[in-house]
Computed example of a mutant assay.
Amino acid sequence: MMKKDSVPPVAMLLVQLGFAGMNVVSKLALDAGMSPYVLIAYRNLIAAAFLAPIAFLLERRSGATITKKVLLQIFISSIFGATLNQVLYFVGLKSTTPTVACALTNTLPALTFVMAAALKMETVRPGTPAGQAKLVGTAVCVGGSMIIPFYKGPVLRLWASPVHWRFAEHPSSSSASAAAAAGHSGAVAGDVLIIASCIAWAVWFILQSKMAEGFSAPYTSTAIMCLMAGAQCAGVSASMDRSLAVWKLGFDIRLYSVLYIGIIGSGVGFALMSWCIQVRGPLYVSMFSPLLLVVVAIIGWAILGEKIRVGSAIGSVLIVAGLYMVLWGKGREMDKQPGLDDKGDEEAALGRGLKGKPAVASNRVDAISLPVFPATSPKQHDTAARNGSN
């Protein structure tokens, strides 16, 4: 049976696998002429519909109550974590190359670390082995992710992949033209937008960690966030293109793409990340993002028949090494964190912020008289408050 300590890293590995597939199907849908704003709107609305029943089944007895403060936090999270992040990325991708965009995305761990450290949500102790591991590991991981796009090197002589997806055999001429045009002045604006999307993504990590201190129902908050983001993206799409034809879906790559990225990319992905943020913190979750480059390289070789070069191999090794150092340092800090009993189980940490505060819903007068789902008994609520878990 899987150890509890291995659940968060396995969950984050699955998230990166899902994101890698999302990049492939999203690119195919955009090449087929689908509007990026419509794609993002469908993504979030489908995610909300997928997560709602799961949240009801798993968190109906959690005792967490939706207050005005929680709703405001979820709304702000939807703006940064879904709408701004996704819109800025797709618009920026039009003006730059996918390789550069993927490389810039891997500034996320450094941005998250700086924000978390500035807000004193992440400890920075360079004099301790754990602190040194986190600092050096972050630098090594980001450095390795930068090697992959900017240093190619000779092609590694590997065996031919037995898998090939014929639908993705020939990229559209429009995407090829966009990639060629990205090398001019518009690339600078595109790069800035990609970095801005990473900043929005890092802010979302911080917000989720803060929200976990007062509302420990990740599936419920994620479902509400996706619903809000879907409405926001639909409004953006309507302002950009008032035609209803852009929303049409057939039994083709457009339908398959929105289903995949809605269920896997946003539904499962956001829920797992929200849970891992509550358990291990925002830096831990963001450190897995550079693995996406490794996964994409493998998928590109297996499905699209792309060649793996020396630069990709070196960068992948550095990414894994840096990630291991950060996880080791984070693990050492959590082992020494006060308030955890000798059992060492993660339920003691679940629902706590990085400062060790229990995640108990507010019972103030300004709370909306609306529990997440049918109200639990006061005894259940008090038990949840004492355990600090959901």
Score class of each variant (00 low, 15 high):
273 M>D: 08
200 A>K: 00
275 W>T: 06
188 V>W: 15
389 S>W: 06
158 L>V: 09
385 A>V: 04
306 E>S: 12
311 G>T: 01
159 W>R: 09
255 L>S: 15
12 M>P: 00
179 A>V: 13
218 P>G: 06
325 M>C: 12
228 M>D: 07
210 K>P: 07
196 A>Y: 00
220 T>M: 08
354 L>A: 11
97 T>V: 03
331 G>V: 01
41 A>I: 03
163 V>G: 10
128 T>C: 12
118 A>I: 09
102 C>G: 08
165 W>K: 04
175 S>D: 11
222 T>H: 03
80 F>P: 02
105 T>G: 15
364 R>A: 15
260 Y>A: 13
356 G>W: 01
258 V>R: 00
218 P>F: 04
89 Y>S: 06
179 A>Y: 05
368 I>T: 08
278 Q>S: 13
101 A>C: 01
266 S>V: 06
334 M>L: 09
133 A>C: 06
189 A>E: 12
326 V>Q: 02
306 E>V: 08
50 F>E: 14
45 L>G: 09
264 I>R: 01
205 F>Q: 07
135 L>C: 03
390 N>G: 15
177 S>Q: 11
245 A>C: 11
342 D>P: 01
267 G>T: 04
146 M>W: 08
301 W>Y: 12
41 A>S: 07
332 R>G: 11
88 L>K: 03
146 M>V: 08
233 C>H: 04
363 N>I: 06
43 R>W: 07
254 R>S: 13
315 G>L: 07
42 Y>T: 04
336 K>M: 07
192 V>H: 11
308 I>G: 03
5 D>L: 12
335 D>H: 12
30 L>W: 00
346 E>V: 14
211 M>C: 11
168 A>N: 03
318 L>Q: 05
131 G>E: 08
124 V>S: 03
309 R>F: 15
366 D>T: 15
182 A>R: 00
316 S>D: 06
50 F>N: 09
357 K>Y: 14
265 G>P: 02
289 S>A: 15
72 L>D: 10
77 S>I: 02
334 M>I: 07
78 S>D: 09
198 C>W: 11
389 S>T: 09
349 A>Q: 13
336 K>T: 06
127 G>H: 10
385 A>R: 11
67 T>V: 08
102 C>W: 05
149 P>R: 02
342 D>S: 13
358 P>Q: 12
